[in-house]
Nucleic acid binder design. Structure first.
Lengths: 354, 354
DNA sequence: CTGAAAGCGCTTACAG
DNA sequence: CTGAAAGCGCTTACAG
């Protein structure tokens, strides 16, 4: 019941192991008759090369890793799926890893590159680094950073155009008549949070609108964090009339909490978010959100990684994924009653900018 | 720049390779001083064992594969995530593979078991087998089949209680007043389709209701297939007043198409589905659906696989995942106007059963 | 063109 | 207890 090895094939074909190996790897053109003898033996024995052994002697695996903080988040799953498709087209397998956003797991996954278990990795982390990850990435070398940054790592990067997206979302809210706009972000220090915040602030400034510290919240990327931020915002003396939640996941938390509190979106409160996850258009309300292409994210990352492995792409490379605003049903004009007057009353507030 | 090997460590510690290996694998209790020498050398050199080499000589990898037809489908992603968590708790890594439901990819993934690239696999296929897959599973041995069956494979299985779920969904529709109920299934021959169909038919029969062939459709598991089945159903002379779509994915297709055609759910048409994907409660309308626990699916599958590898679980084992109906907003009483009378008129139709 | 042999980096029976 | 050596199944310089 032992699986046949290349030696068995060689014996059966009356040839040397080397000849068989070379033939199987197409590094040699054998006379037809000889080639057939090998192929027949392979057939008959049901021989399958042992990939582990090949990997050990060759030092490469034709396998890539995709490390995500949460494979259950639809946007990340969609990126993984696209990366897989592109990797396959380029002759690579893709292993998908769930890091649960734990640095220890990210580190051990990255070490599989040094191991030659995989040739390289696409890393989608989702926390700020204390330096460990940066060092590991530098050591692993064949890594592309997608969606979030790891500072100090000299590798290619693929980010969404966060700043433009943030500005797009905010301008849309302003154009619809909102002045008191809250910002619900992820953790501070992440490029997603900082980029989208910069876009938000830029758009507010353009419009001559103040950015109030109490209206900009930060926290984890989770439904719960979105819900919590929403509740805090609504319990303010003068709640905002619109929210820019910088991820659909956060917006989902906002929607759930709003439902519970009986506030209607968009009648009582407008919401714009970011990502455009698969079912965003079917939610209630349909989410107005900044779209970034998961497909392009995955494909570009995979291509960049393969290029890097083959020395065809520089480590300084940066790729920006374009964004666009998708208007659906979660935004409307602010309710007549509210904040218009309130915001005037607060004109002199020292916490205001601009 | 070459990564340090166990030989380097041995040299640095002034010991044999064997001693180092045994110490690192805790198969030996060295005098404290000696142990420290090794640990220091490991530290200093930054030694990390080469997993590939270990795997080749040991013949096992402490790694499991999770093969899914579509990692981008939220339910599957959730199962993968749970399987990963359980595997990690049991000391195994989990690689997630996207097979795209292509048999050639499933086969090559399965062959990684024979390869010793992975110790075993959880296989979630989604097509009927022509025998190839069954043979590969039999050969690979350390496989657990989840969600869908592969006939002729003598391995453990984890299925939802499809029949009960199908009956639950159908009875709910009947209890709400529906008589003309359509069934939108996946491909014929899959246990999900057949089991849920059996439950559907059982519930209809219980209620003394006919099952009309034109009202039961089968097709791929895709949004598109759901939309198409819906359109065909609605263009019938007497369309159904309710649909049991046996997967949320299908229901999402139905909802989209209904939106386009201007039919309102649940006022014009009631819909029940199956799965309860993550955002089902936030859709418009909130989906009334049969819940199956993705978490339990993933955890049980992983545990069964590890048990199988360790010879602790028999290949005949079957585990059934309980289901329950979650009532939300996609079902209401049938519209006054319709089918009540129509269905009487068709009493004598030969295509009717029972 | 072809084969014998070394080597990839571990683990583990075997002998001391 | 400890080490020298064989072996896991391939690939590939090297020599013929």
């Amino acid at each position: 019941m032992r699986s046949p090895t290349i030696r068995d094939v060689a014996k059966a074909a009356g040839l040397s192991v080397a000849a068989v190996s070379r033939h199987l790897n197409r590094q040699i053109a054998l006379p037809d008759e000889t080639a057939r003898r090998i192929d027949d033996a392979v057939q008959r024995l049901g021989y399958q090369p042992n990939v582990i052994a090949r990997r050990l002697s060759r030092g490469s695996s034709e396998t890539l890793a995709f490390i995500t903080s949460d494979i259950a988040y639809p946007f990340f799953a969609a990126v993984a799926s696209a990366a897989e498709a592109e990797a396959a087209a380029l002759g690579y397998s893709l292993l998908i890893f769930n890091s649960r956003n734990e640095i220890s797991r990210e580190l051990s996954l990255l070490s599989r590159i040094t191991d030659h278990q995989v040739d390289g990795a696409i890393l989608m982390t989702n926390h700020v680094d204390d330096g460990q990850l940066g060092e590991a990435v530098r050591k692993a070398r064949f890594v592309v950073l997608a969606d979030e940054d790891v500072s100090g790592a000299d590798v290619p990067r693929v980010f969404a155009d966060n700043e433009t997206g943030g500005a797009l979302a905010t301008r849309h809210l302003i154009a619809t008549g909102h002045h008191r706009i809250a910002f619900i972000g992820g953790p501070r220090g992440l490029v997603s949070t900082e980029g989208r915040l910069a876009g938000f602030e830029m758009a507010m400034k353009e419009a001559g609108l103040p950015t109030e510290a109490a209206l900009t919240r930060f926290g984890f990327y989770s439904e719960q964090a979105g819900a919590e931020a929403f509740r805090e915002l609504m319990s303010m003396p003068e709640p905002p009339t619109a929210i820019f939640a910088i991820a659909d996941l956060l917006a989902v938390g906002v929607i759930s909490a709003a439902r519970e509190m009986g506030v209607t979106i968009p009648d009582d409160l407008s919401v714009v978010s970011f990502d455009d996850i698969p079912y965003a258009h079917l939610l209630n309300p349909p989410l107005t959100t900044v779209h970034q292409s998961a497909d392009e994210f995955g494909r570009v990352s995979a291509r960049l990684l393969v290029d890097l492995i083959h020395g065809r792409s520089g480590s300084g490379e940066r790729h920006s994924i374009p964004v666009k605003l998708i208007e659906r049903g979660s935004v409307s004009a602010p309710p007549r009653s509210s904040s218009q007057d309130n915001s005037k009353r607060r004109q002199g507030d020292p916490s205001q900018t601009g």
